[in-house]
Design a protein around this nucleic acid. Sequence first.
DNA 1: CCTTATCCGGAAGGATTCCCTCCGGTTACT
DNA 2: AGTAACCGGAGGGAATCCTTCCGGATAAGG
Lengths: 211, 211
Amino acid sequence: MTEPQALRIDARRNRDQIVAAAKTLFAERGADVPMEEIARRAGVGVGTLYRRFPDREALVREVARESLAVLLTHANRAQADGGQGWESFLGVLENLPDLWFTLRSTVLSPAIRTVILDDPEALATAQELLSVINGLVRAGQQAGTLRPDVDTGDVVILITLVISGLRASAGALPDTVHARMLALTLDGLRTGSGSTLPGKPLTPDPMDLLR
Amino acid sequence: MTEPQALRIDARRNRDQIVAAAKTLFAERGADVPMEEIARRAGVGVGTLYRRFPDREALVREVARESLAVLLTHANRAQADGGQGWESFLGVLENLPDLWFTLRSTVLSPAIRTVILDDPEALATAQELLSVINGLVRAGQQAGTLRPDVDTGDVVILITLVISGLRASAGALPDTVHARMLALTLDGLRTGSGSTLPGKPLTPDPMDLLR
DNA sequence: CCTTATCCGGAAGGATTCCCTCCGGTTACT
DNA sequence: AGTAACCGGAGGGAATCCTTCCGGATAAGG
């Protein structure tokens, strides 16, 4: 909305590095990593961090906003790809701190979710994102790729679990494992893969996930 | 090995409650939960905890030993059930703090894994457990239930990711979700469910997982 | 019931970790 | 070169955590 372009270029660069570092560390270790560590990873002093973001919550909010925006872009692109949209969206799943962070914070961490719910901008983006994903899920089912007895909530939660687990164990597990585990998980979501599921399909309602 | 039966019955009861509490909290929140919280959950003072376990490592070691022993029992029973062994072993997957803890600590947490590796008793049980699981996997494949392009490492890691994720989000997610997510995951491991997996089957070798 | 060895709870000291401010020095722009 | 904006990191203060210690309670045995 506003134009915050009063930043000197070095300041701007540092700001971006801070957000990037925070994004990664939040995704890996949760939203309570020490500020000093974020600063160090960004190649910056703590002072710089606090000058740009008055407190931890401000930083979390900014990371949430940017991550959600990036994801929405990807989701929209996947939707535009037409029939193969669902598959191509899944192709994005790897190596994207925005995704790690967003999934983990939206579905799992109550602390971060609160920050998102209290920020109109982030909330709006999150809702739009969820609705696009919902469309992708429906499209996948129409195309016959995705099993019909699940709903968006199932997909989001399942992927979140695996993804955030993999992220948390970064380093402890060989890199080649990631793709394999993800593939196995997605196979469980494919048409024709099996058993009768207990419970009912998890709708996102739209907002079981965002409330 | 030895008979540590010099414990008074109230002391014995407290000791067991401490181990149970630690097991649950370790599984939920990792091995660095405050000692005082473990004590509170056990309905006991910190003093009691420290009298029984000189430091955190001693407590972790005991929890590891007991959890591994319980799991080995279940695994053996499943094996004795014959053809349906694999399925019945999977039936045990739910609601078992021993499992949460063991999977999480063996596969994910380097800190706890170190403790296990340094304790001959725990290590021996872990190796035996892994070998029994290995047998169950092979049996499942022979029976045609389990897809042939995976190995024990794949199964253990995938289940660990989902299980420990679910455990970490205890409370944040409705209870009915657990069974559903687990079922979806297992469907990915079933025969005929799909895609060609990237990478090679993960053997446990025996000790990729325990080293 | 009474003695006594054993055990219990939780207050509190000491150490660690973390948040955040502040200021002397540096860097980008004109 | 001059100046306004920016940087880094030391350090005060608060919070958390680990561990010890001891007056009081409790089970076992006669």
